[in-house]
Simulated scan of single mutants.
Amino acid sequence: MKVGIITDSISEHISGVGRYSKNILKSFASSEHEIVSIDWRNKEDLLKILEADFSNNVVVANVFPFFKNLLWHFFLLLKLKRSYRVFDVILDCSQFLHIFGKPYRPYIYVVHDLSFFKFPECHRRGKYLLFRFFFKKTIDKADHIVCVSNYTRNTLLHYFPNYIEKTSVIYEAAEDRFKPIYNTKKLNNIADKYNLEDKFFLFVGTIEPRKNLENVFRAYHKFKNEISFPLYIVGKIGWRTDNLLKLHKELNLDGKIRMLGYIPDADLPALYNLATAFVYISIDEGFGLPLLEAMQCGTPSIVSNAGSLPEIAGDAALIVDPNSVDHIGKALQRLSVDKQLKDTLIKKGLLRSSNFRWQKTVSELSMLFFELTQKYR
């Protein structure tokens, strides 16, 4: 079966949707399907940022002089229908907006999160308005909608109940390289590279309002005498971060909380392994891949009771109210001193994370491809 996968979200400084798309492409590369990337870049450019080969790619030229990414997506399905009639099925991992046209073959749209509906204040106004006006028009075109968690599917059906018959949940996964590391030299090299203390808390993700770092900062300030480890923030600066950076300065957290910025993808597994605990107290997540990466590395985690995080964590993380500075602070303090709790969460996290594997994702998507192509015959 020839499967077209929209891959333009894959980039060198990868996160979120781009990481999902990259792992989908890599995981399908060894399947029985012929995988064709759909992108404005050629195959050679894509191979520079991938660790796996794929069958071929279709280059849909981006000829727009402005708003290039936006307009390319707006017209993509129309171009595919007119000029690229080579696929048995099209998988769209980008969660972007496609206004014009509809593919002549089964079209599957992956929904990663819907926070622009639930928490519009957490997004740039332009993106919020675009999705408010054009998201339904886009998913109307889909023959099937894959949601990455039950929470995301339930949220989708809350806003669009008529889609119940064409939605399903297929979980994503963490890469196999996220695992316990016993090579002391490798760990020490990463610790030296980033000048890390022996014990620390870790956050990984794009720095933006949904991640609720302001309340984490307030908890660190309020419980500064009880929390003995620093917090390292790993991730690129996103949007609407002025208040967060101002709060960091006002609370004088330089010695307690350190921004490491974006770090190379290859260093992340060791960083998780070195961390005393992972902190991910978002107000909303569609899946929460960093949590799964942390658990798979054997890192105890503190997560919020919001979004998909309780669904992914199960009983394998310490779960707190993201709106309560006291809850967050007490959880940080507890994991600073309670070795028995840490050991329990490590074991439970490793067991829980074993339920999520890319091979399973590929298998479930393959079954969906078959079902949809049968309907088109």
Results as ranks from 00 to 15, higher is better:
residue 6 I to Y: 02
residue 13 H to C: 09
residue 23 N to A: 09
residue 24 I to M: 10
residue 24 I to C: 04
residue 29 A to F: 00
residue 29 A to Q: 06
residue 30 S to G: 02
residue 32 E to D: 14
residue 33 H to T: 05
residue 39 D to E: 01
residue 41 R to F: 06
residue 43 K to L: 09
residue 45 D to W: 09
residue 45 D to R: 15
residue 45 D to T: 14
residue 46 L to Y: 08
residue 56 N to M: 00
residue 57 N to V: 00
residue 58 V to G: 07
residue 60 V to C: 03
residue 64 F to C: 08
residue 70 L to R: 12
residue 70 L to N: 06
residue 73 H to M: 02
residue 74 F to L: 12
residue 75 F to C: 14
residue 79 K to S: 13
residue 79 K to Q: 14
residue 81 K to T: 02
residue 83 S to V: 03
residue 84 Y to C: 12
residue 84 Y to M: 05
residue 86 V to E: 15
residue 91 L to C: 02
residue 93 C to D: 03
residue 93 C to E: 06
residue 95 Q to E: 11
residue 96 F to E: 08
residue 96 F to D: 10
residue 98 H to S: 13
residue 100 F to L: 15
residue 104 Y to T: 12
residue 105 R to I: 15
residue 108 I to K: 01
residue 111 V to Q: 09
residue 115 S to C: 03
residue 116 F to E: 01
residue 118 K to E: 14
residue 119 F to R: 11
residue 125 R to D: 05
residue 125 R to C: 00
residue 129 L to H: 02
residue 129 L to D: 00
residue 130 L to P: 00
residue 131 F to P: 05
residue 138 T to K: 13
residue 143 D to V: 00
residue 145 I to V: 14
residue 146 V to M: 02
residue 148 V to K: 06
residue 148 V to P: 01
residue 150 N to Y: 05
residue 152 T to A: 06
residue 158 H to C: 07
residue 160 F to C: 13
residue 160 F to A: 15
residue 161 P to W: 01
residue 162 N to H: 09
residue 164 I to W: 01
residue 168 S to P: 08
residue 169 V to N: 10
residue 172 E to L: 09
residue 187 L to V: 05
residue 188 N to A: 02
residue 191 A to N: 06
residue 193 K to L: 11
residue 197 E to V: 12
residue 197 E to I: 04
residue 198 D to Y: 01
residue 206 T to D: 06
residue 208 E to C: 12
residue 210 R to Q: 15
residue 213 L to Y: 10
residue 218 R to Q: 07
residue 222 K to E: 15
residue 224 K to S: 09
residue 227 I to V: 05
residue 233 I to G: 13
residue 234 V to Q: 06
residue 240 R to T: 02
residue 243 N to D: 13
residue 247 L to Q: 10
residue 248 H to I: 00
residue 252 N to T: 10
residue 257 I to P: 07
residue 260 L to C: 02
residue 261 G to E: 08
residue 266 A to M: 11
residue 269 P to K: 06
residue 271 L to M: 14
residue 273 N to T: 07
residue 276 T to P: 09
residue 278 F to W: 04
residue 280 Y to H: 13
residue 280 Y to K: 08
residue 282 S to N: 06
residue 282 S to G: 05
residue 289 L to S: 10
residue 290 P to K: 01
residue 292 L to D: 11
residue 293 E to P: 12
residue 295 M to H: 12
residue 295 M to G: 11
residue 296 Q to W: 00
residue 297 C to Y: 02
residue 299 T to R: 04
residue 299 T to H: 10
residue 305 N to Y: 00
residue 306 A to H: 04
residue 306 A to R: 15
residue 308 S to A: 15
residue 316 A to T: 05
residue 316 A to Y: 03
residue 317 A to T: 04
residue 317 A to D: 08
residue 318 L to H: 14
residue 319 I to D: 04
residue 320 V to C: 07
residue 323 N to R: 13
residue 330 K to L: 14
residue 330 K to C: 10
residue 332 L to I: 14
residue 333 Q to Y: 11
residue 334 R to F: 03
residue 341 L to Q: 09
residue 344 T to W: 00
residue 345 L to W: 13
residue 347 K to A: 10
residue 348 K to H: 15
residue 349 G to R: 09
residue 349 G to K: 09
residue 352 R to P: 15
residue 353 S to T: 08
residue 354 S to P: 08
residue 354 S to A: 10
residue 355 N to P: 00
residue 355 N to T: 11
residue 356 F to V: 07
residue 361 T to A: 06
residue 365 L to S: 05
residue 366 S to M: 07
residue 367 M to T: 14
residue 371 E to H: 07
residue 372 L to G: 03
residue 373 T to K: 04
residue 373 T to Q: 03
residue 374 Q to V: 11
residue 374 Q to T: 09
